[in-house]
Nucleic acid binder design. Structure first.
Length: 498
RNA sequence: GCCAAGGUGGCAGAGUCCGGCCGAACGCAGCGGCCUGCAGAGCCGCCCACCGCCGGUUCAAAUCCGGCCCUUGGCUCCA
């Protein structure tokens, strides 16, 4: 059973074969840092992170590169707003820091490099020059455009015919372009004020001033700024190779961004740009996608604060990366239940392992068989195009096996439980779920205080003062502390997230 | 208009590539039982699906083929 992935280029699910059997080159189209990251971004990040973790689990070394687009009109438009910064670079830096901190909060593995467009202008210029020399691009009024008619396979990723694309070109720019579908590799001059005006928020600097803060670079065609698409080609070639194994990004980038990346890269190198194109589907709000431009987003920061990393990651992987996912209070609540169920079973197993009864030689065949089976189905699910929903199901069935084993039992199967716990830890880690929370000093203290209250409650219960006992339980629950009475005393769970 | 993805139980969401083990997973909600002072958690069991519509292929179709309807995304701001 080997890994299979759905390749947008072919529309087929194919066996994954990296060029080098030991190393995988993974490029992820990162953010334009003009807004705080939202849960839609987090969904893609987490899925890419799970891909990265699974590839490592399979034994590959993963070289993972993820860019930041820090040159963009939308960034310029925010100059002066709040404390974002006084020029384009400041604003970008503010959001890059914010993004990296959000990524840490989501427990993402770090990429090897986070290249920035602003640091790769020379490479971009080189690439553009190559394209001009090879006859794929032309200069016009100080700007450089890619001539789509020169690249026979233009449209192969998004499955469109060139004439269809041509008819949709922006009429305002036709004058400079040979073909309306041609796209800019290099844009002459500074930033267009009108473009800034369009994206300005309240409180931002006026458009004229903002434009003045935007950086321009020298080039063979005069002062100017790089076009949007060329950056990813330049950066992925710089930090990885001319041919990538996996190129991942949001579904909304298929056209024009990825289509153009293919055209300019393959034209320049005569090599296939990426062997596998994977696209993450978007969040579905009521009847539209979540996006920065629609303003209907929840920030990653708010999501982590509200739900905690584990619940959030459970939510974000509750559907396959390449299927749309419904974003609603109900679907979030469901993810919370799924995670809680996992965590409760895990905690119960760990607790049982600590008890003296666990040292027996009882063997529970069905526990062991269920855990083995769960592991197999987890592996099969992940190998089948990173099916995280199925993988979660496998984890949940380990939880059920643990609970069933613990039910009405005097003696435990130590080895069986041990395996179950290790399986949850190991496979959970593939999804970035962490059962062993960091116990901070304050959490320990809180635990001690809760124990104290529970002791008092226990005395009240023994005395038959159930009203008083229930009151204490209600008050603890009002604080988010969940109480469970068991045969040997009450246990509790502190609120998750912290 | 063109391109792409999808329409599966009350909800959510796998399964569709490679037709039979799908008598449709996992979870939530609901119901019954056990446990319990009560509650929760948990266990066992159950309910709910003619798998968008119509036609075809086949011994056999949610899965393959054809047509239709609907939804969503993209069509140069987008993860």
């Amino acid at each position: 059973m080997t890994l299979h992935v759905t390749n947008t280029l072919t529309g087929e699910k194919e066996p994954f074969e990296p060029r080098d059997p030991e190393n995988v080159l993974l490029y992820y189209c990162g953010l334009t840092v003009s807004d705080p990251p939202h849960l839609g971004h987090a969904r893609s990040w987490v899925h890419v992170d799970v891909m990265h973790r699974w590839l490592e689990y399979l034994g590959y070394d993963v070289r993972h590169v993820e860019n930041f687009t820090d040159i963009n009109e939308k960034i310029v438009a925010r100059v002066g707003e709040d404390d974002l910064g006084e020029d384009e670079a400041d604003v970008a830096e503010t959001y890059i820091e914010r993004t990296l901190s959000d990524m840490r909060a989501l427990n993402l593995l770090r990429a090897e490099v986070y290249p920035r467009v602003s640091e790769h202008v020379p490479e971009i210029v080189d690439l553009v020059e190559t394209l001009i020399e090879k006859g794929y691009a032309y200069e016009s009024n100080g700007s450089v455009y890619f001539d789509v008619t020169s690249f026979d396979e233009y449209g192969k990723l998004s499955n469109q015919e060139l004439e269809e694309i041509e008819s949709q070109g922006d009429p305002d720019e036709r004058s400079e372009k040979r073909n309306p579908a041609d796209f800019a590799l290099w844009k002459a001059g500074g930033v267009d004020e009108a473009a800034i005006e369009e994206h300005r928020h309240e409180g931002a600097a006026d458009a004229e001033h903002a434009c003045e803060t935007a950086q321009t670079w020298e080039s063979p065609w005069g002062e100017g700024r790089p076009g949007w698409h060329i950056e990813c080609s330049a950066m992925s070639m710089t930090h990885l190779d001319e041919t990538l194994d996996l190129h991942v990004g949001g579904r909304d980038l298929v056209f024009p961004h990825h289509e153009n990346e293919i055209a300019q890269s393959e034209a320049a190198t005569d090599q296939r740009f990426a062997n596998y194109w994977l696209h993450c589907e978007l969040f579905q709000m009521d009847d539209e996608k979540m996006s920065s431009s629609l303003g209907n987003f929840v920030t990653v920061e708010a999501g982590v604060d509200q739900l905690g990393t584990n619940v959030l990651r459970t939510f974000l992987t509750a559907g396959s990366y390449n299927s749309k996912q419904l974003y609603s209070d109900e679907t979030i609540a469901e993810a919370e239940e799924r995670w809680d169920r996992l965590e409760r079973a895990y905690d119960a197993a760990v607790e049982a392992l600590d008890s003296p009864d666990a040292r027996t030689k009882v063997e529970d065949e069905s526990l062991r068989a269920d855990v083995d089976e769960a592991r197999e189905s987890f592996v099969a699910a992940m190998n089948d195009d990173f099916n995280t929903r199925e993988a979660q199901s496998a984890l949940l069935s380990v939880a059920t096996a643990i609970n069933a084993h613990l039910e009405d039992r005097e003696e435990y199967d130590y080895r069986g439980l041990r395996t179950a716990v290790e399986t949850l830890e190991e496979l959970g880690a593939v999804l970035g779920l962490s059962f062993v929370g960091e116990t901070t000093g304050t959490a320990d203290l809180a635990g001690d205080v809760v124990d104290l209250v529970l002791n008092v409650r226990e005395q009240e219960r023994d005395a038959g003062n159930y009203d008083r006992a229930d009151q204490l339980r209600d008050e603890l629950e009002a604080l988010g502390i969940e109480i469970q009475d068991t045969d040997d005393g009450a246990s509790y769970r502190l609120p998750s997230g912290e």
